[in-house]
Design a binder for these strands. Structure first.
Lengths: 253, 253
DNA sequence: CGGTTGCTTGAGATCCATCAATAGGAGTGG
DNA sequence: CCACTCCTATTGATGGATCTCAAGCAACCG
């Protein structure tokens, strides 16, 4: 896979907030290694292993997860196209969590030495990478807030709003609709629920008319209403300009 | 307050894993601004505000928190002496959460321009700061795991183990005992529980004999047992050497 | 076609929240 | 020193959100 296509979603995300020059684009391209692919449920990186490269998601979805001794699993974060696992090449000696593929997945490993060098030498890129890192940290904070204080229904609604924004800025939302290839089991592991309860909550959410979800495709009919119901405040993405395009006059309350 | 004392716990934490030269110590000192103090329940930084400096906790405890529209509050992270809110001076334009004092608190604001400069120019400190940042991220991951998949009892036990390690490396654990000045209400907001249930779970935990908690002072009688019961694995702190000193022969299982 | 995976539904159990009331300590002002 | 308030810890009773167990069904696949 050519560097240009591998970099496309990542660049698109960065450019949703910052200007990246053509030179910066080339510099970023120079840290990319040959692409790799993974099947669903296969690990990209395993907890305890010594990683030697970060990964940039090119296509497909992945997740970070941890597992308890009693077998319970918790997904820590979703990785969608354009997400870079370690923006500054800052790797611990041992992974403290695993990364695995949710869908068929293409990633580009990133030369961490190069990534570190870039962060030191290039002001433009350093700032863009910090914005990216701050964004993923904010998402972690919101996940904590959801797990601790939101109901099942609110957690689902909030997640769908979050993904709406994240996917829109890499061009994966069309007509208020996007691919949502996460199984109900994985949704449970992400939101701290059982898959049974995810199932029932999804039905309830569909009944409100705010969303449709069928064949792993999600359509949001009333974004403003969904944001309201799940107490979603998009400001945590730290976008300078409005990425969000809310239909005026949508009914909610 | 002199820079030397202000820096002491932070340096002690960094040195629990890395060598920091005398010169590095001076460089770190150069980013410190005059100390400020806060009373319990008062905000150090408020969500939505434009921060102009990071803060380093010198004495007392603080927390990051978010609040939902319906009034529910979630503590995202505890900040104890030696914790630096933004190790690289990477501040968003607006705070996406608040920071407030739990106890009487002394913090030293950090000149973010200096912090950024240090991170670019000084290899030794850059690496130490990355280790620190990775550590706080790991703690976030564990918090997510607790909130999503651990029971109330396990969450409490895990928290006490985590604090044991964090406080030990800044010298605040003596004789298996440390100050735990977090009210049961705040423990609830931290662990995603009601304060009533925190109260009952604490009683249950005391009944096991593994801990005592009285007058905001926690004593751990059986660290190995507590780690076991709460599925605590200290490797997520990424320490090169064992910070942990477990009494051999303690009974658990 | 048998096996696997994911979705759906029902019934019952459990963990935890909520509501409500009491009590103690710390601070404040008279 | 007392009255008052505020905050926190504690306890009881009740209800609810969510889990677990169990079963059936559809889709996919070698």
């Amino acid at each position: 896979m050519a560097n240009a296509t591998a970099l496309a979603p990542f660049l698109r995300k960065l450019r949703s907030n910052t200007v990246i020059s053509a030179e910066g684009e080339n510099v970023l391209g120079s840290m990319l290694l040959p692409a790799r692919t993974f099947e669903p449920h296969h690990d990209v990186l395993m907890e305890g292993s010594r990683p030697n490269s970060a990964v940039l998601v090119v296509s497909g979805w992945a997740c970070r997860y941890k597992q308890l001794a009693n077998g319970k699993r918790q997904i820590l974060a979703l990785l969608v196209p354009g997400d870079l696992s370690e923006p500054f090449g800052a790797l611990a000696e041992h992974m403290d969590h695993s990364i695995s593929a949710i869908t068929p997945l293409t990633v580009v490993p990133v030369d961490v030495a190069k990534a570190r060098q870039i962060a030191v030498e290039n002001v433009e890129l350093r700032q863009a990478l910090w914005w990216d890192l701050l964004g993923s940290q904010s998402i972690l904070y919101e996940r904590i807030l959801s797990l601790g204080r939101r109901t099942a229904l609110e957690r689902l609604g909030h997640l769908f709003c979050e993904l709406y924004i994240r996917l829109q800025r890499v061009g994966l939302v069309h007509n208020q609709e996007y691919e949502m290839p996460v199984s109900q089991i994985d949704l449970g592991d992400l939101l701290g629920l059982s898959s049974v309860h995810v199932n029932r909550s999804l039905q309830e959410l569909r009944l409100t008319g705010m969303i449709s979800l069928k064949d792993r495709r999600l359509k949001i009919h009333d974004l403003a209403g969904l944001m309201d119901a799940s107490m979603f405040d998009p400001s945590y993405f730290h976008h300078r300009e409005k990425v969000l395009r809310t239909k005026p006059g949508s009914n909610h309350g």
